[in-house]
Design a protein around this nucleic acid. Structure first.
Lengths: 240, 240
DNA sequence: GAACATAGGAATGATATGATAAATGCGTCA
DNA sequence: TGACGCATTTATCATATCATTCCTATGTTC
């Protein structure tokens, strides 16, 4: 962003102008730069502020409206909604929140969601998934093992493992959590790995999940994954 | 909608024009009237089809894009994304899907999500919720009991009960699932209640949850809720 | 004849400006 | 005093035009 006497022009070299305005205003709302439950500047002011035409600004606002960050009414203007209306399941919003401040409490809340979701996904996967889908989980583990030897990226390997389980569940809702988990795990793993941790234990825990899945042991796989996540949560809560 | 020789004009008396186009095109995509993974008509054609200016049509498309239903590129046009990219956690999309055909399998998948989420919410609520939040759960039960005597609406009372538990969890992600659960439960309850069912059993199961919550019994509350949902799921799977 | 450069075309992206509709407050008139 | 109408403000809708992108097809060169 180029700051120029209070005027901000989003760089249109990086992607489209509308998208960059969505990014900027969205992040500003999420980080509290526009006070919640209060009025936004009127369209015309935002236009001059971002040096954009009304159309492009309106399209950006429509997107933010779809994400639940703002509501607009004629004559009244556009208001920022209260945080409890924000759709945390939108990866954009989550990314803005996590990027602004790596809130440990938010990561713990996210881990609690994983603790609910992932064992169920493993259970469904053990029951219903086809061989190819389970192979993807094993592949994810193989990548983690390779990363441990320095032959792969540990972050993306770990994410691939957990994503593969969601995919294998066959449940469309759980599959739709992939972008969310991907976004949040990027921050979460980076955080937990920054704490001293036994990599072998972590690897073994993941292996146990993959192995139980291959054996089609629904409760075993769910239990193993649950234990893995409980350890992760403990790691975080001990830091509070 | 007024059909007029292939042209459709969304009624702008009911809400805003943009919103009605989003509704119409979104529902059309979700119900397969625009073939998935294929090109949409170009902007100009959609404009004449919906008798709308390009501005409003573009704003509508931006919203659909934000929901993950379409992607647009210059020169190439707008393409419908494959269903695995649709954000089922967007209440609009879920509503369009459920309204189009009350797909039992989708409801079962949704129940599996509830089976993962709600016991965790109850557990967190038993541990952390303040008295007022727990009172809301009890109030929800009271409404269900009143509805059983004909003094309240059974559907909204049931929804209020489950929503209150999500709210009481204190977990921002789980709280964000309220609109989703509200939308899906509207269809789900309507379906299960259409099957012969013992209302007293249902009421008693809900009572057990509320009672365990008041007692701050985390595992007890989670278990009771889990049992309630297992029964619901059985009711549905038996119909497959 | 094949590889590369280039010009054209078709679609979305962005801008500018005018007209319309809705919500609110204020003033006027019964 | 109270109800109604009007002006004002702001979002919403419409239209016209230019910019950008990127595929396609046509040459042009080696």
């Amino acid at each position: 962003m180029d700051i120029d006497g209070g005027q901000i022009r989003a760089r249109n070299s990086l992607g489209r102008l509308t998208q960059s305005i969505v990014d900027d205003v969205g992040a500003a709302i999420v980080t509290g730069k526009f006070e919640a439950a209060s009025m936004m500047p009127i369209e015309a002011d935002l236009c001059t502020r971002y040096q954009a035409s009304r159309s492009v600004l309106r399209e950006a606002m429509k997107v933010l409206n779809a994400k639940g960050l703002v509501t607009s009414r004629p004559r009244l203007g556009t208001t920022v909604t209260t945080p409890d209306r924000w759709n945390l399941f939108d990866p954009d919003i989550l990314r803005w929140m996590l990027r602004a401040d790596i809130s440990l409490s938010l990561l713990i809340e996210f881990t609690n969601v994983r603790l609910a979701i992932e064992p169920m996904a493993a259970e469904l996967a053990a029951r219903n998934a086809d061989a190819a889908a389970l192979q993807a989980v094993t592949d994810g583990y193989a990548r983690m093992a390779a990363a441990d030897e320095g032959h792969d990226d540990p972050l993306t390997a770990d994410i691939a493992f957990h994503i593969a389980i969601l995919e294998a569940s066959g449940n469309r809702f759980l599959q739709r959590l992939k972008p969310l988990v991907e976004t949040a795990l990027t921050f979460s793993i980076r955080y937990t790995d920054s704490i001293a941790r036994n990599e072998q234990d972590k690897l073994a825990a993941h292996h146990r999940v993959a192995e139980r899945l291959r054996a089609r042991d629904a409760t075993g796989a769910a239990g193993a994954l649950r234990q893995l996540l409980l350890d992760t949560r403990d790691l975080m809560t001990n830091r509070l």
